[in-house]
Simulated assay, not measured.
Amino acid sequence: MEPSNLLDGGEWVTDGGLETDLLFNHGVDLPEFASFPLIETEEGSTLLKTYYGEYAAIAAAAGVGLIVETPTWRANPDWGAILGYDATSLDRANRAAVALAHGVADSSAVSRTRVSGVVGPRGDGYVAAGADADEAADYHSAQVHSFAAEGVDLVHAMTMTEPAEAKGVVRAARAASLPVAISFTVETDGRLPDGSTLADAVAALEATDPADWYGVNCAHPTHVVAGLDGAEWQHKLAFFRPNASTMSHEELDAMEVLDSGDLGLLVESTTSMRQQTPALAVIGGCCGTDSRHVAALWGVPAAR
């Protein structure tokens, strides 16, 4: 399917803050903040299916499509090695994650579904450590090819902290003949961790390695609005997965209890943001959110 037709002009529900939901609301231990190892056990797989099922119910209630995004944000070589995964076992886990996502999509009551292979940053999700686009392409290519082998509809790189690594993911996706979305994260001032503006980050990719879609994740809507300037690039934003909290990334990292935020403010500020970003089509959540937050963003009853 051509990228221009993949989202077919419709609206799509995706999931919320998987890792924070499992950690704080379900008491699941996630070493290195990684959820993909859950795929290795029957208990873990069942938990993931139940989790995604809540968002399928939201999509059905809202009468929109469902994008099931794999639990693979940490499933890359560096983080995998810390968790005891080599290239072979990491390939197996990434493939299994895609298979699980397909199972969720196929068993849902939603008529329009897509499966997205999630790529996370090589390093910490909040720190811009510097990257080379060619090196990043090589680094992320194994995970992207695992996704392609299992038939994802698209690749979605989330929490990108700088344009260079994002370019690398786009190149890896192109080499695997897959459509790709790039979601940047921003600090409270609306800028990426490397200091770039959202406008500059999108422009950098558009100049050499344009993605099929852009988005923002792991930031409260009030933070994103600080980075909007009214220019045409805002019409390229299609994905949004906000944090529940208005705290900075540094403050959230230091928290030992979950800040589930002000739900009313989240809905109100997301609505305001959408008025400035009319192409937003895929709405879910990120840190601190669960299905209750996402249901509220879609104006339907909570699934839990």
Rank of each mutant, 00 (worst) to 15 (best):
E150A: 15
A207K: 11
D200R: 05
A172Y: 08
D200W: 00
D132G: 06
V118L: 15
A173P: 00
A207Y: 02
P163E: 15
M160K: 05
L178I: 12
F184M: 06
D194G: 01
L198D: 05
Y139H: 09
V119L: 04
A166E: 04
R122S: 02
T185M: 10
L198Q: 03
A181N: 06
G190P: 12
E135L: 10
A149E: 09
T159A: 14
T188Y: 10
T197F: 04
G117T: 13
G120S: 05
A201H: 01
V115N: 08
L192Q: 09
A133S: 11
P179W: 13
A199P: 00
V169N: 07
G130T: 04
H156V: 15
Y139A: 10
L154I: 14
F147M: 06
D200L: 05
A128K: 01
T188V: 15
A133R: 07
D138Q: 11
G125M: 03
P193Y: 06
H140V: 03
T159K: 06
A203Q: 08
R171Y: 00
H140L: 09
R114N: 11
V202R: 11
M160F: 11
V186S: 10
G168K: 03
V127K: 01
R122F: 03
E165G: 01
A137H: 06
G123V: 02
A203L: 01
A131D: 03
A201C: 05
R114C: 12
D124Y: 02
F184L: 07
A129D: 09
V152F: 11
V180M: 11
V152S: 07
P179S: 15
M158G: 09
V152E: 07
G117P: 10
D189R: 10
P179Y: 11
V118C: 15
V152C: 11
P121M: 08
T185I: 14
A176K: 04
